[in-house]
Design a protein around this nucleic acid. Structure first.
Length: 500
RNA sequence: GGCCCCAUCGUCUAUCGGUUAGGACGCGACCCUUUCAAGGUCGAGAGACGGGUUCGAUUCCCGUUGGGGCUACCA
């Protein structure tokens, strides 16, 4: 029983006996992971990958995947962004078991945790103003040193504290960082160690009484019984602070797993200037969700073998945190498109119909009553994106969608006079075929006869027609193409190409 | 600056001390199609550097270099 075996390895130390008699369901429900995006922007591919890994892990161990929207930054969070994130996950097929919960609703608990820490002497009120802090920071950096805030490093005279308190001045609550080693065994990085003395007495509660990120996260993760915190490794430096908070709050530590970053083609952190970074961009580009999932899964994780196309069930069965790469990876759009092409080839025309129709709608093409299935079937093996596929379908349906591409132009240039000459030979032969007998087989025979009669290589007969009908040099076999476009329209397009 | 993380072909990766360092994308060639793709075959292409440990290091340790992250009353 594979699941049970995996679970026993993933669960906390426990005796063999208790494990043996533990009902599987109880073990299965123990693991709880969460994806916690902040709705301050679209769902970018890095976030999507984090969500995917959480989801894969939850599925693999039979745990629960919780979605929590971290909207505590009131300035930048919007409902629209939340919706875009939810839509992005839905499109990708990443479903959550609980939520979405909104962190903004847990203010009272955050405050209670901060006050408990205050009462226990593990946190304290600080009356320094933002201006005073800025000045201290500026002074430290001017001296070439690092700014760090602790009571000892930036003491405030007792009288001053009393005075400000009496005056009702605003204050923040800071966590009293203990000077001790803070280490954890990261599920992907292994042992990581920090020293409390290198950390600040960081703020946990703002002067307006709202929690700062590190407190909010820890408070929520404890309350939601999160057992595995799987997130980007840009959070590694937050982890020691959060561990200190867990300890101060007397809570059991979750397992931390820090995923490597996804970089742009230039090796820099992925940002808007790298072009498409939102999952919505890839949807618009005509990437299929399954292909996107597959590609993202292979960014930082490997099933261990040589497989590239990994079915979802296989992915879930084989996913482990131990197999996650430590190194950041570069997002390669070309490989994504190749992979998408693989999925396009494997999917049936029926499965592709809806996505293609959606793209046709975006292109403003009305297919009318035409049966698109044969056209899609002929083209899907050649296309890399649904958008490209839809454009190809459109150009077959509507002459105004015909665009002469670079390769098409190159062929015309290369053939010179022979281009139009070849078309002039094919035209009357095709014109002689009646609408009733116009089909792929008939047209093929006719064109082969044209080639033989004029001692032309078949390529020199076919390619000009391909360019005349599609504008490019890549398409389904030319006879099929002629059948799809139809007799009159084909002849018209050939005529146009001759005259051009 | 300080602290932390990382390092195999251009890119994604396999290897868990002993391999002609494997696969995939991309690139090139060829085959197949008396038409384009797709597909197939082949080819070029990597262990950053320097020290250790070891009979033996891509693999373990240290350093250097190079990347990256954090260093907010953002998340």
């Amino acid at each position: 029983m594979r699941v049970a075996v995996e679970l026993s390895r993933d669960s906390r130390p426990t005796t063999h006996d208790s494990l043996a008699f533990q009902p599987v369901e109880i073990l299965m429900s123990a693991t709880r992971v969460r994806f916690a995006p902040s709705p301050t922007g679209y769902l970018h591919v890095g976030g999507a990958r984090t969500a995917l890994f959480n989801w894969l892990y939850a599925k693999h161990v039979g745990g629960t995947f919780v979605l929590r929207i971290e909207d505590t930054d009131k300035e930048r969070s919007t409902d629209a962004h939340t919706q875009v994130i939810l839509d992005g996950m839905t499109w990708l097929g990443i479903t959550w078991d609980e939520g979405p919960f909104f962190q903004g609703e847990y203010g009272p608990r955050h405050r209670a945790d901060a006050e408990a820490l205050l009462a226990a002497g593990k946190a304290y009120k600080d009356y320094h103003t933002a201006a005073e802090l800025d000045a201290a920071r500026a002074k430290a950096s001017a001296a070439g040193g690092a700014f760090r805030f602790t009571r000892a490093l930036m003491p405030m005279p007792a009288e001053e504290i009393t005075r400000r308190e009496a005056a009702g001045d605003p204050f923040v609550i800071r966590f009293a960082m203990p000077d001790e080693e803070i280490a954890w065994d990261d599920a992907v990085h292994g042992h990581i160690s920090w020293q409390g003395r290198d950390l600040d007495d960081f703020i946990i509660l703002r002067s307006d009484g709202s929690a700062i990120y590190n407190l909010a996260v820890v408070s929520d993760d404890i309350a939601m019984k999160i057992t595995h915190v799987i997130r980007g490794d840009d959070h590694i430096s937050n982890t020691p602070k959060q561990i200190a908070l867990y300890r101060a709050l007397g809570a059991e530590l979750p397992i931390f797993a820090h995923l490597p970053m996804i970089l742009g083609a230039d090796g820099k952190k992925l940002s808007k200037r790298h072009g498409a970074t939102a999952v919505g961009d890839y949807q618009d580009m005509g990437i299929m969700p399954a292909a996107m999932r597959n590609f993202l899964a292979l960014m930082g994780w490997s099933p261990g073998g040589d497989e590239e196309i990994v079915p979802e069930a296989e992915m879930i069965a084989r996913f482990t945190l131990e197999a996650v790469q430590k190194k950041a990876s570069v997002f390669d759009t070309t490989k994504l498109e190749w992979m998408n092409g693989q999925y396009l080839s494997q999917l049936s025309a029926e499965e592709l119909l809806a996505p293609v129709e959606r793209q046709l709608g975006i292109l403003g093409v009305d297919a009318g009553t035409r049966d698109l299935l044969p056209i899609i079937d002929a083209l899907k093996a050649r296309a890399r994106t649904v958008t490209h596929l839809a454009e190809q379908v459109a150009s077959r349906l509507d002459r105004s969608r015909l665009v002469r591409d670079d390769k098409g132009n190159a062929l015309v240039t290369k053939m010179g006079e022979r281009f139009a000459q070849s078309l002039r030979l094919s035209y009357p032969a095709l014109e002689a075929v009646s609408a009733a007998e116009w089909n792929a087989e008939k047209v093929d025979a006719v064109l082969r006869a044209v080639g033989e009669a004029n001692t032309l290589k078949l390529g020199d007969v076919m390619q000009p027609i391909r360019v005349a009908l599609t504008g490019g040099t890549v398409s389904e076999p030319v006879n099929d193409l002629l059948a799809v476009v139809g007799r009159d329209e084909s002849l018209a397009r050939i005529d146009l190409a001759i005259k051009a």
